[in-house]
Amino acid sequence: MSTQKNVLREAGTVEENGLRLAEDKAEQVIDALNTDLAATYVLYHQLRKHHWNVEGPEYRDLHLFLGEAAEEAEEAADELAERVQALGGVPIAKMSNLEEHAPVEAEDDDIYDIRTSMSNDMEMYGDIIETVRDHIELAENLGDHASAEMLRQQLLELEEFAHTIEHFLGEDSLKNW
């Protein structure tokens, strides 16, 4: 628990920002970005779980891929949090709040075969991709072209990782040996 006596910025509030985006518009973008931040952290933790637990003949390739995907998710989360802060908001950070705000749900703590794990990852990527597309449109409509551009770049990465998972899930791979 924090020993901070004075709260500097209260969670859920929006302050005036130096980017000159009106507070009412910034509030909507911040809410969307915090949703993306939460989803990205849920994705990150699920990818790490699979990175830790992958086994089998394709271990090395999958272990490296899942590690890279998790690192990319962590970088994306950092960008999202920093953009929320730049817009005058407070990025959500508490684990229970991240889970509550995420539009995706992580699998449980059990360990599954890698095909099931990767299928779960593919499902989560798809859900996040759909949400990010909606948030790009929202940011554009509110005149926040920089947030929309940042989300476009993240969308490209999300789609690339989803496409790679699609290849891993090809009919002739990830067989139970």
Rank of each mutant, 00 (worst) to 15 (best):
S2I: 10
K5C: 07
K5Y: 13
L8A: 05
R9G: 04
E10L: 11
T13F: 00
N17W: 04
G18C: 09
R20N: 15
R20I: 11
L21E: 08
K25E: 01
A26M: 08
V29Y: 06
D36T: 09
L37C: 05
L37E: 01
A38E: 03
A38H: 00
A38P: 03
A39Y: 03
T40V: 05
Y41K: 00
V42G: 03
L43R: 00
Y44N: 11
H45G: 03
L47E: 11
K49I: 05
N53R: 07
V54N: 00
V54W: 08
G56K: 05
P57V: 14
D61Y: 08
L62V: 04
L64N: 10
L64H: 10
F65T: 08
L66D: 02
E68W: 07
A69M: 03
E71D: 15
E71A: 15
E72R: 14
A73S: 12
A73R: 05
E79P: 00
E82N: 00
E82I: 04
E82V: 09
Q85W: 12
Q85F: 13
A86N: 03
A86P: 03
L87G: 07
V90P: 01
I92N: 04
I92T: 11
I92K: 02
A93G: 15
A93D: 07
S96C: 06
E99K: 12
E99M: 14
E99D: 11
H101E: 12
H101Y: 14
P103D: 09
V104D: 02
I111G: 06
I111Y: 02
Y112Q: 10
Y112A: 03
S117A: 15
S117E: 11
S117H: 04
M118W: 05
D121W: 07
E123R: 15
M124T: 13
M124G: 08
I128Q: 02
I129R: 01
R133S: 09
D134K: 15
H135Y: 08
I136H: 06
E137M: 11
E137P: 05
A139K: 02
E140Y: 07
E140F: 09
N141T: 15
H145N: 14
E149L: 13
M150H: 06
L151D: 08
Q153V: 12
L155Y: 04
L155N: 06
L155C: 09
E157T: 15
L158Y: 10
F161E: 09
A162E: 14
H163K: 14
T164G: 06
T164F: 01
F168E: 03
L169P: 00
L169T: 02
G170F: 07
E171Y: 11
E171W: 03
S173K: 14
